[in-house]
Simulated scan of single mutants.
Amino acid sequence: MDKLSFLGVIIGFAALIGGNFLEGGSWGSLMNGSAALIVVGGTLGAAMLQTPIASLKHAFNVLSWVFAPPHFHYDAGIKKIVHWADAARREGILGLENVAEREKNPFAQKGLLLLVDGSEPEEIRRVMENDLLQKEQWDLQAVQFYESMGGYAPTIGIIGAVIGLIHVMKNLNDPAQLGPGIAIAFVATIYGVAFANLLLLPIANKLKQCVGHESRFKELIIDGLIAIAEGENPKLIQIKLSGYLTP
């Protein structure tokens, strides 16, 4: 569980609400059902219009990564690859067949099977990098859904404000209604900007980081498998892959 994400959401909205109170506003001044409906519904509808249904389902599936991101243990990955290299040196490449059958990571398992089948290093790299790229693009399509919502929300908020001002203009003969009416109209703008900058765009950026971590871990696996295919010394492989460890 990523506590920092929870803390970020709490601090962001606490600053918004707290600043409103310090300026003399009330909780009720920020509450407007019609403005929320226009901004949330309009933003969601616009983003759904441009998104294929498969990508939309995937976008909802990866949303949990914001608060429970997948973890990739680079040090454990390096140790595992070095173990594979030791096994290959002692028993030959065919000795990795049992290792491949027990491997739980589908990406690593595919690479090990290609290695055992006697594929050339460049062929292994080509196949594995193609898989990496396809998965990365698939995940980034999900990220794009939240990025697009972050782009639409402020504009939809302005539309909501204009709609509110239209209703205000109908009450020009009643000056007492103008001030509160204008204030309510601009609540839609606040919703749009806050929705985009406190939730949607940060969510998109967090998901991009998760996608990047996964791709980097897969690059580690590819480099390790290629080194094994080329018969490199396990100790040298460990030194080479240590560059993936963050300082």
Rank of each mutant, 00 (worst) to 15 (best):
G8W: 01
L140Q: 08
P52S: 03
G179W: 04
A185R: 07
W65Q: 02
K240L: 05
A100R: 10
V82Y: 10
A54M: 07
L63F: 11
L132W: 01
Y244H: 14
L198W: 03
W27N: 00
D174Y: 11
A68F: 15
A229P: 13
L132H: 02
I163R: 00
R126Y: 07
A204P: 00
T189E: 01
I228S: 09
V99R: 13
Q50G: 04
G151V: 11
E232F: 12
A185E: 05
Y146K: 10
A161F: 06
F60M: 07
E103A: 09
Y74I: 14
I222H: 07
I124T: 09
I159D: 05
F107N: 02
L44S: 11
K170C: 02
N105G: 06
A196D: 06
H83G: 08
I159C: 09
G24E: 06
A14H: 03
V187S: 08
A153I: 08
Q209L: 14
L198T: 03
A85M: 10
A76I: 09
K218G: 01
E232G: 04
K206C: 04
L178Y: 09
I237A: 02
H167L: 06
W27I: 02
G118Q: 11
M149Y: 05
L225Y: 06
E123F: 07
E103I: 06
A188L: 00
H213V: 03
N205A: 15
L201R: 10
R216Q: 14
I17P: 00
G12D: 04
T43E: 08
D117R: 10
P234A: 10
R102A: 15
F217G: 01
F21A: 01
G19W: 03
L37S: 10
G92D: 12
I53A: 12
D131W: 02
H73T: 08
F195H: 06
A36G: 09
Y244Q: 09
K57D: 02
F186A: 00
H213I: 01
V211E: 13
I163E: 04
H83V: 05
E101N: 03
M31Y: 10
N197D: 03
M169N: 03
L133I: 02
A47C: 12
R102E: 15
D75R: 15
K235E: 14
H71A: 14
L96S: 14
M169T: 00
F60R: 01
P52D: 01
G160T: 00
